[in-house]
Structures are given as C-alpha cells and as structure tokens.
C-alpha cells in the first residue's frame, strides 16, 4: 500500500471484494448449525452469492492491478492469490464483516442485524455501481444487486419476526442490533477513495448511500418494534488494513491449507 491513504482503482475493487469475501467466510460458518434446516439452505445461498461476488471482484482487481503496473507480460494475481496469499494488512474489508457471529460462535440475532446492515448498504452500492463508467464493475454490480436485494429481504423478514416475536426474541434482537450498530459508520466513510475515481464515475461515493440506507433500515427497525441503538461508533480502520484481533484468526483458518502447499493446484 502506498503512503497516501487513498485507494487506486485496484484498491477500490479489492475493498468491495474483501467485504463480500470475508462476509462469505463468516456466513459459511452457519452451515450445519442454523436454527432450522430451511435456514441452512437460505444462509448457504447467501454465502454462495457473496462468495460469487468476491470471486468476480477479486479476479477483476488482479487484472486492474496488472494493467496499472504496466506489467503486461508478468503474472497477474488471480482470485486465489489474492484470497490466500495476502497478509492481513492488505485486506481492505470493513470491521463489520470480520467479527465472529457472537461470543459462542453463532448468535442468530447478530447475524441478522449484520445482514440487515450489510445487504441494505450493498443494495444501494450496487444500484449505483450499475451505472459506473467502469464497464466491468457495472456488469458485476448488475448481477449482484439482484442477489443482495434477496439478502436484504431475508434479513428484513427475520428482523421483523425476531423483533416482534416473543419478549425473549425482542431482547435478543435488540442486543444483536446494539452489537453491530457501532460498525455501520465505516461503510459510509469515503476517506480512503481517490476522488478522481468518484469524479470519473468509476467509483461510488459511499457518503451518498447513507441517507437511503438510513431510511430503509430505520423503517425495518421501527416495524420490528426495535429501537435505533444509541451507541458510539467503533474505532475502525479496515479500509487502511487495520483490523480487529479476530481477523488474524479468520485468515489463519482460511489461508492455512493453501499456504502449506505453495504453488499447488487443487
């Protein structure tokens, strides 16, 4: 990463890819542990969608990077090089997606709160990116927007049912929302993006996404008889590669096997 804090185009694409990649990694942990079999299937779908977005974006990031380096004959980092061989400091995802789903592995309320926040944001993001001047990003976004619309719908349904279900579920859903809320701010931070990328229409200024996001999320929270958490924003830094202590463990698990066999094909 260069000394400046702004991301090049490759870095911008990587930041989007990493959000989806790391979210997919955490979502995959629910498979075989969901509250009902139908939910194992649904969460599996969502994880697969996110992973698919990550793969498209990672592949593209590798190509953009190679072009920027002017290295037409040299190696291009592919999706696996980027997923398995980057060190923690080079991952650009937000803190929201990297944390575990709760103290004992799986808190469904935390997962649904996180999905509500992330997928509502991604829907706004990809909606705007559909008209990006970067054709590849536009194409990836066009496919992704349909997927994240479904994720958002899924999260909405559960937040409603958990918030307006039993007293116990209401308490737990509020707690889940309270736990995730401090991390939503990072999604709308634009400090890391090169203004030229936004000016040229390639990238979306995330600050623009905040208002429509708030409207949608606030509505769901109200309908679910929940309250908007009154919590301080967390100290973040994911877009600069500064992560939580949990990121190291996540990457260790994800990368270990691939790194143990350098150069191997699977």
């Amino acid at each position: 990463m260069s000394p400046e804090s702004v991301l090049t185009r490759a870095g911008y694409v990587l930041s989007l890819a990493d959000d989806s990649l790391i979210a997919a990694q955490r979502m995959g942990e629910w498979i075989a542990s969901a509250p009902e079999l139908e939910e194992d299937v649904a969460l599996g779908n969502i994880a697969l969608d996110l992973l698919g977005q990550a793969r498209s974006l990672l592949s593209y990031a590798g190509q953009v990077e190679a072009t920027a380096l002017g290295n037409h004959d040299g190696p291009v980092r592919d999706e696996d090089d980027l997923a398995y061989l980057r060190d923690e400091r080079d991952f650009l995802n937000v803190h929201l997606v990297e944390r575990s789903h709760g103290p004992h592995g799986g808190d469904f309320a935390v997962t649904m709160a996180r999905m509500l926040i992330l997928s509502t944001y991604q829907m706004e993001l990809y909606s705007h990116l559909r008209t990006s001047t970067d054709e590849t990003l536009a194409a990836i976004a066009a496919k992704a927007v349909k997927e994240v619309d479904y994720h958002r719908d899924h999260a909405n349904m559960w937040v409603l049912r958990l918030g307006d279900g039993t007293e116990d579920s209401h308490r737990r859903m509020q707690a889940g929302l309270d736990a995730e809320w401090p991390y939503h701010h990072e999604l709308f931070d634009n400090a890391h993006i090169d203004p030229l990328l936004v000016e040229s229409g390639a990238a979306v200024d995330p600050r623009l996404l905040r208002e429509p996001w708030e409207r949608r999320v606030d509505e769901v929270i109200a309908q679910a008889t929940l309250s908007i958490p009154d919590v301080r924003p967390a100290v973040t830094g994911g877009r600069r590669g500064i992560h939580t202590e949990q990121m190291g463990y996540l990457l260790a698990e994800m990368q270990h096997l691939a790194r143990s066999h350098p150069g191997a094909s699977w």
Binding site: A34, P35, E39, F108, R161, D168
Partner: peptide, 9 residues
C-alpha cells in the same frame, strides 16, 4: 440453540 428463533417466528 435455535429454539428461540423458531418460537419467535
């Protein structure tokens, strides 16, 4: 652990 979720639904 999923009991509370099913009951809420």
């Amino acid at each position: 652990e999923g009991g509370w979720v099913r009951e809420a639904a």
